[in-house]
């Protein structure tokens, strides 16, 4: 498979703080690549730098679309999209206007059909369609995430980056978001998925990177990473999709000594053994 994104020794610094140091990473066409890691590992800095939103050192190249490396605008015109953790919707505008603006740079392409694109997004997110004339700022958290994702999909992205799409959402909504991610994967959209919800992310991913303290600690096929003892200990032990802590189980903020330790890591998963369920009851009382 051809490489879409090639990062070579990417570093990001804020004043004196190093957020990322020498990260090298590849994302391939038709695959879902995931980057997992705890809070403050530099995941958001990574996608922001890839999108050109923040200055960075090292090389960001898009081998298929060399021009895209010029600026954030050039990336968007190459149909490389980021759905940021902060959503960044246009609050006072309607859902419909937010979606239309998603296709802003495509509006002058030949054969551009706004209505067809809107219909596509409406099919994926019927709830957005119901609220089409509502101001974006009146939406609930889950709907906002759907709108942010829908806005990106309006561009029919060739490479889509999702930053913590499940953050702060109820399990039901998380399931819906992941359903859409799987659908996009089937449609052949290459995805770079940033997640704290390691289990859900690894389940859809082909390839995974584990980021900690701004450095890649581990990489490999999703299956290998999922099987890695250290990952199991640090992330999967508590990354329950329907977990009692809500969708995003918070890993320890600072993991002393790398992957293997962590205060909650050794705690057995209460609902182990129900892996087959797409989402599982957190409380377990009813099962």
């Amino acid at each position: 498979m051809s490489i879409l994104l090639d990062l070579e020794r990417l570093s990001v610094r804020y004043n004196r703080l190093t957020a990322l140091s020498d990260v090298s990473l590849e994302a391939r066409a038709g695959e879902v690549t995931t980057v997992i890691g705890p809070n403050g590992a530099g995941k958001t800095s990574l996608v922001n730098a890839v999108m050109g939103l923040i200055p960075s050192r090292g090389r960001v190249t898009f081998p298929l679309w060399p021009k895209a490396a010029l600026s954030t605008g050039a990336r968007v015109r190459a149909r490389i999209c980021l759905v940021p953790e902060t959503r960044d919707l246009f609050g006072p505008m309607t859902v419909l206007d937010n979606l239309r603006l998603g296709a802003f740079v495509a509006r002058s392409e030949r054969g551009f059909d706004m209505e067809a694109r809107l219909a596509e997004v409406a099919r994926l997110f019927p709830r957005l369609d119901e609220r089409r004339h509502q101001q974006a700022q009146t939406l609930s958290g889950g709907e906002r995430q759907m709108l942010a994702l829908g806005r990106a999909l309006m561009l029919r992205p060739r490479f889509l980056m999702l930053d913590e799409p499940s953050l702060g959402l109820a399990p039901l909504v998380v399931a819906e978001i992941f359903r859409v991610i799987e659908q996009l994967k089937r449609d052949g959209v290459a995805i770079l998925l940033i997640e704290q919800n390691a289990r859900a992310a690894l389940r859809v991913a082909d390839h995974a990177y584990v980021l900690e303290g701004g450095e890649v600690q581990l990489q490999g096929s999703a299956a290998t990473v999922m099987a890695d003892a250290r990952v199991v200990g640090a992330y999967l032990g508590m990354g329950r999709t329907g977990g009692a802590q809500g969708p995003v189980a918070e890993p320890p903020e600072r993991i002393e000594g790398g992957l293997a330790s962590g205060s909650e890591a050794s705690r057995p998963a209460r609902d182990a053994g129900v892996h087959h369920a797409r989402t599982r009851p957190a409380i377990g009382a009813a099962s």
Partner: peptide, 8 residues
């Protein structure tokens, strides 16, 4: 930021 992300 939202504007940057839609190419504006």
């Amino acid at each position: 930021r939202g504007a940057e992300l839609i190419g504006v």
